[in-house]
Simulated assay, not measured.
Amino acid sequence: MSSVLPGTQTRTLECVAEKFVVDFAKNSGVARERWHSQQSKAYYQRLTGEFIGRSQSQKWATDEALLETPEFTLTMLGQLCQRVAKKHRAMAKVYEIVRSMAAASARVNNEAHEVRQLSAQVQQQLALRVDNLEAQLNGTDLMHLGIVHCEQVFARWQTGHYLSFSPAGRCYVALQELYWGTFGDALRFGSTLQASELIEQARALAISQLAQDVNASARTRHYYYEWLMFPSTPDMMESKEALAWLGDDCDSDNHPVIFATTQTHMGVSLGMPRICSAMRLGSAMVDEMFN
């Protein structure tokens, strides 16, 4: 089964599948985390129906107690990691979450023997998957792969794949694609110099494409609402929800530009410049994402 969902532009983003599996792990059972907005929660719930299967999720939804059980969480995580998430970052994050869940349960010593066995089995499967992915990465030219991935993502932006988002939203979506994909792997496993060069490539492409989207030079300043305005399309509300979900982990203090871009329902953060150019906006967003 393909990890890319059919349908609107938001569902064809490769980062959606990777982030969803991590969020499923974070928001299940004892590891449940609070959503920062109703928009994020709504989009996540919609994805749950798509990735798990509507008939199955509806059946589970009739029994809320089942959704809270570690058996359900671990079984579903094992399945999702096999058929949905493909990249190292997501696998590593899920592995750490499962380990933390197991450690927390061990401290209170309230898990049945069958659950401990299932947890150990899932951890073993994830550890093997992470090791295999790392071995593949260490045997490749990460710099080349990172460059190619970066060029591919920005080429998709240039050819209209992210047009349902605001100009700033398109930039964030592109950076999310890089973060969860091969580009992100190259940053983590490559040298410091390679990572710096890749980030500068992403910065230059982000600034250039932002300027093109508003038909101006990279240094021309615009009021912030021009960067944050969504085009009027049939998919506008879903695009807003998707962007809110993709940026749900950010906060207004540490990621003011990303927060203003993704959490448009919350008002503009103080750190978001009220008048800014493509150069300032794109550079700030790259720094908040990767530095």
Results as ranks from 00 to 15, higher is better:
262 T>K: 14
100 S>D: 10
213 D>F: 07
110 N>P: 08
58 Q>A: 15
246 L>Y: 05
165 F>I: 07
276 C>N: 06
169 G>F: 06
267 G>A: 09
60 W>T: 01
122 V>I: 14
113 H>F: 14
93 K>R: 13
94 V>K: 03
239 S>R: 03
219 R>M: 10
181 G>H: 00
84 V>W: 08
82 Q>G: 07
87 K>C: 07
66 L>P: 03
106 A>P: 00
183 F>G: 01
90 A>H: 01
41 K>M: 10
50 E>T: 09
170 R>N: 02
163 L>E: 14
20 F>C: 07
251 D>N: 15
156 R>C: 04
106 A>M: 07
184 G>D: 01
44 Y>F: 15
12 T>H: 11
224 Y>A: 11
21 V>G: 01
256 P>W: 03
34 R>M: 13
88 H>Y: 06
269 S>K: 06
274 R>L: 11
108 V>L: 11
158 Q>G: 06
46 R>S: 14
21 V>T: 06
47 L>Q: 15
238 E>Q: 01
216 A>W: 11
277 S>N: 04
71 E>Q: 12
23 D>P: 02
249 D>S: 05
103 A>Q: 15
155 A>P: 00
1 M>W: 08
65 A>W: 11
201 Q>Y: 12
108 V>Q: 15
234 P>T: 02
62 T>Q: 14
276 C>M: 06
91 M>V: 04
236 M>Q: 13
215 N>I: 08
80 L>Q: 02
47 L>F: 12
50 E>W: 12
280 R>F: 09
170 R>H: 02
